[in-house]
């Protein structure tokens, strides 16, 4: 199967799209409405100084219904997922959850997925893990692989076809 099934919004994914929208509405109604813009999240955001992520602004934009602006913004992809915004929010708003939902919607709407996510996803579909066994270098510049170190065999899905069939259901499932 191709990764397109999972990451773009072809016709079979209309249910997925509905689900994402439902989730976002829920976040919007039940969580972000309580935000009183104290910006404690942004004061402590790990990505703010480096990449100008402003979680409180994301929440405010979502409250104003500016979904399109948000899913097209590169800044939603700068979150380091440290969870500090969620942990310390005085109103139990979870900007990180909103960011995850926005990224998912961006993907479902066929926006370009940045960086290596696509490659990692492809690898998961192929062999179950984000990458296969790597060759690493020691401090003395010799190269080693898993087998050289006497470690047991890699644990990964035994039957690739069945594993993929499971994941296919996410793409094809009708809610």
């Amino acid at each position: 199967m191709s990764i397109i099934d999972l990451t773009s919004m072809g016709e079979p994914q209309s249910e997925l799209r509905k689900e994402l929208n439902d989730r976002l509405t829920k976040l919007q109604d039940e969580i972000s409405d309580y935000c009183f813009q104290c910006a404690r999240c942004t004061s402590g955001c790990e990505a703010h100084k480096l990449l100008e992520l402003e979680p409180h602004k994301i929440v405010a934009l979502l409250k104003r219904g500016l979904l399109n602006e948000l899913i097209n913004a590169d800044v939603i992809w700068t979150c380091m997922t440290c969870q500090k915004c969620r942990e310390r929010c005085p109103q139990r708003v979870a900007p990180i959850e909103i960011l995850f939902a926005l990224k998912n919607i961006a993907v479902a709407n066929g926006k370009q997925i940045p960086g290596k996510y696509t490659a990692m996803l492809q690898s998961i579909l192929t062999m179950g893990l984000i990458q296969d066994v790597q060759q690493t270098t020691t401090r003395t510049n010799t190269t080693v692989k898993r087998d050289d170190l006497g470690l047991p065999p890699l644990s990964k899905p035994v039957d690739a076809a069945k594993f993929q069939a499971g994941i296919m259901k996410i793409a094809m499932e009708k809610v």
Binding site: L6, T7, L16, E19, W77, C79, T81, F100, A101, K103, N104, V107, A108, I113, Y117, M120, L121, I124, G128, L129, I130, P152, S155, K156, P157, V158, F163, G166, I167, I170
Partner: peptide
């Protein structure tokens, strides 16, 4: 050691949370 484990799903959370949950 148990056979058959896969990725936990966390790296895919930004792409598709349902996939994360499933994995």
């Amino acid at each position: 050691d148990v056979e058959g484990f896969s990725c936990c799903g966390e790296p895919m959370k930004s792409v598709n949370q349902l996939l994360t949950l499933y994995l």
